[in-house]
Simulated assay, not measured.
Amino acid sequence: MKNKATNNQQKKLKFDRLAIYGWRCTIFLISLGIGSIIFGKIIPSPEIPVVTSKLENFTKNKDKYNVVFIGSSKIYRHIVPSEFDKAMERRGKEISSYNFGVSSMQSLESYFFLKKILAMKPKNLEYIFIELQNIELSINRENWRTNRVIYWHDWEHTFWVFDLILDYQHSLRVKFGALKSHTIPLMYNLGGVGKVDGLIQWINNQGNQDNITFDRLNNRFMQNDYINGYLPLDQEIGVSYQQRRQNFLGNLNTYHEKVNLLNLPSDKVVNPNSTLLRVTKDLIQIVKDSDVTPIFMITPVLQKKENLIALKTKEYVSTLFLFNNPIEYPRLYAPELRFDKKHLNDKGAREFTELLAEKFSEYLDREKN
């Protein structure tokens, strides 16, 4: 009996220790969560090149604009708002536009960015041009812990992405990899880890009003044509940009071959997958909920994009402006208007902007009638 009592006491002691340990862990996790939330609210967000500048510039003048362009570098480097507005004015339309393109912006980030823009409630915004892209559900491992990825992984948006992944028609292994690539940025976002950079920037700026961050130092958006978000690759400095340019000029034969392939007729029928349909529908819904009209577009790229075009032919999207046709738009594929195989140079961007304004003006005339 005595041994049995002793065993019971030992079990109770172990249980009590485990309970105390569990309680301490719970208190630690709760404290960590509360501290992270407070830290995230108080500490300024880190400055993210291009993204921060564009959000700040737009916020200051958000009620000025009635047209916004959003997408990747194919928007950022290709649309000149000042030229677009002038071209529309010549056609009797009063337009004030802003280029919200950011290099490497994919659809999942565009969705988050779009929500931020609409949450500002710009009272005169009427149209949003959205670059139509294929959906990349996974993030490259080297980008998981970057501020550029962390900033758009809040609870609401990340769980929307999780839902997309779980509905994705693929193997469990692929789904798990995709979920992991978004879980880590979410944890960093909730923990305010990315805001350490913001804290360092804030401390460095205290007591020195002339001290500016790297992005502001290199911010050309406050100059001439760049005030509304456009910056051509011609104006970028750095060896990597010049190397891209030289590689393009040294491989013009390969470029011409790709353009010729794009000219070949195709009877290929490609249906948009369920993920593309879901994201497109959600994009359309959040824009329309703000009483704004979405206009999708495909820029002069070197792919046919049949699955994206199918969104229009199958009437999932009502308006899609297509420019990826060298036969219809040969000038946009002329080497002298290209910076590299993927992007127009400044001269090409201005010609493209004029064509875009012409197509938009025709669209407005049709809608009016």
Rank of each mutant, 00 (worst) to 15 (best):
N3D: 15
K11T: 06
K11F: 05
K12H: 07
L18W: 11
L18R: 14
W23C: 14
W23V: 03
T26Y: 12
T26R: 14
F28Y: 10
S31M: 12
K41E: 09
I42H: 12
I43H: 12
I43F: 11
P44S: 04
S45Y: 12
P46Q: 07
E47I: 12
E47W: 12
P49V: 05
V50M: 11
S53E: 13
K54N: 06
K60R: 14
K62G: 08
K64M: 12
Y65S: 06
V68S: 11
S72P: 08
Y76Q: 09
E83V: 10
E83G: 14
F84M: 10
D85C: 04
R90L: 15
I95D: 08
M105S: 13
Q106I: 01
L108E: 07
S110P: 07
K115I: 00
K116L: 11
K121T: 02
K123I: 00
N124S: 10
E126M: 04
I128R: 05
I130G: 08
Q133G: 07
E136G: 15
L137S: 04
R145I: 00
R145A: 15
T146W: 11
Y151M: 04
Y151D: 06
W152E: 05
W155E: 13
F159D: 08
I165V: 02
I165P: 07
Y168T: 05
H170C: 14
L172D: 14
K175W: 01
G177N: 15
A178W: 03
A178P: 06
L186Q: 07
M187P: 01
L190Y: 06
G191V: 01
K195D: 02
I203T: 02
N204E: 07
N205D: 10
D210L: 10
N211Q: 14
I212M: 08
I212F: 01
N218Y: 09
N224V: 00
G229T: 09
Y230A: 11
Y230L: 11
P232T: 01
E236Y: 14
G238A: 12
G238T: 02
G238F: 01
V239C: 09
S240T: 04
E257F: 10
N263V: 01
P265D: 06
N271P: 08
N273M: 03
T275P: 03
L276K: 04
L277F: 01
T280E: 04
L283N: 15
I284Y: 05
S290P: 13
V292S: 05
P294N: 05
P294Y: 02
I295W: 01
P300I: 00
V301Y: 03
Q303G: 13
N307F: 06
A310Q: 03
L311P: 04
Y316P: 10
S318F: 00
T319W: 07
T319E: 10
F321L: 15
F321Y: 02
L322Q: 11
L322C: 08
F323M: 02
I327H: 14
Y329F: 13
L337A: 08
F339N: 02
L344V: 00
K347E: 12
R350M: 05
F352W: 01
E354F: 10
F360H: 06
F360A: 05
E362S: 14
E362K: 13
D365Y: 00
